[in-house]
Simulated assay, not measured.
Amino acid sequence: MHLIITRFASMLALLLVFLAPNVWADRYTQLESSLARINPDMKASSIAPTPMVGIYDVLLNTGDRLYMSADGEFFFAGTMYQNTSGASLVNLTEQSALGARLLAMQGPAAQQSWVFPAQGEKKATITVFTDVDCFYCQKLHAEMAAMNALGIEVKYLAFPRAGLGSPSYQVLVDSWCAENANEFLTEAKLRAHNKQAPQTSPQLCENPVIAHYTLGQEIGVNGTPAIVLDSGELWPGYLPANELAKRLGIL
């Protein structure tokens, strides 16, 4: 099942490449104008036709999704399903989101991460958007040894829920710039859990924290932890190591 989803998502991701802004901007000026009337800061990251005639799937720069008429006069937000006679119900919104996430997670921002490798044979990889002062992020991190022992490699991307420039943002920057980034991040989560003062900040360095945060917003992360699979699937929230392994098909 995961293989089928991955193949579909890969095909959809390639489609989205050809629908990049410089390709479709001239074709969908009415939709762009409609977005500007809603909010001048609202932009489309991608626009694609849907199976519903005259309705377009518009992915916003905020990670949200709208469905708009071709002239931009009407739009709605929500989940679109395809209910074809004799076939299973299809969640078109999730299919579209899957392809967009897969494409985004192949970009440069996601390639820079804290990596906690699997022990022995690597059986699965998960990418987790994390914060240091989030209780369930701390709880998930406490399962790190168990996840790694089950063959799960964990990659962390930064998502300071309080926003850029917040204290948690600074701790994530410090964690990246530390001599031993994994140890610093582990200690930061433990100290936050115990309500202790943050560690001494290392020398500032170039870091991907802003890029991670922006990526999370683009793919619709609105809380932490948020687990992204190689297929592009997004699992919000905490899962114990054994439950995670079962869902990944390891146990």
Score class of each variant (00 low, 15 high):
N180L: 07
G72T: 00
P167A: 05
M80T: 01
M105R: 02
A25M: 13
P49V: 05
L172M: 15
S85T: 14
N83P: 01
D64G: 10
S45Y: 02
E32T: 09
T186G: 03
P49G: 05
S34W: 01
L244N: 04
G72H: 00
L164K: 15
H141T: 01
E32K: 14
M80S: 01
L19K: 10
Q82W: 00
T186S: 09
L89A: 03
I227L: 15
T93W: 11
Y238E: 13
A110S: 11
V221T: 12
L92N: 02
M68A: 06
I152L: 12
L215T: 08
L98K: 03
N242S: 05
S96A: 10
Y28A: 02
E206N: 13
V90F: 01
Q112T: 09
V17S: 08
V17F: 08
Q138S: 15
D71G: 08
Q196I: 03
N180F: 07
N180I: 06
N148C: 15
P49I: 05
K246R: 06
E233P: 03
V17N: 09
G54S: 08
S166R: 05
G163S: 11
F76H: 04
P236K: 07
A104W: 01
G163C: 11
A118F: 15
V53H: 11
L14C: 08
A97C: 03
N22P: 07
A211G: 08
M147S: 05
R65A: 05
N39A: 03
K189S: 14
T224Y: 14
L190Q: 11
N22H: 12
S46Y: 07
Y56V: 02
A70Y: 03
L140C: 13
Q199V: 05
S96G: 09
Q199S: 10
N91S: 02
R247K: 04
A146I: 02
A13C: 06
A97E: 06
A226V: 08
I38L: 09
L16Y: 09
L248N: 00
M105S: 03
V23H: 12
Q203F: 12
A20M: 07
C205L: 14
K123V: 03
D64R: 11
G216A: 13
L12T: 14
G72M: 01
N194R: 11
G99H: 09
Y81V: 00
K155H: 14
G237H: 14
E206G: 13
V53A: 14
A25Y: 11
N148P: 12
V53W: 07
T84W: 04
I47K: 01
L229P: 02
L150G: 07
P236L: 08
V90S: 01
K246E: 04
L248M: 02
T62L: 08
T125E: 14
A245N: 02
L251P: 04
L185F: 02
E143P: 06
T214R: 14
F18Q: 09
Q30S: 04
N222T: 12
E187T: 14
A87Q: 12
N22M: 08
N91P: 02
L229W: 00
A181L: 06
F116C: 04
Y238I: 12
S231M: 04
T6V: 06
M42S: 06
A149N: 13
S201A: 15
F8Y: 10
P208N: 06
L229T: 00
Y67D: 06
V173G: 11
N61R: 07
P117M: 06
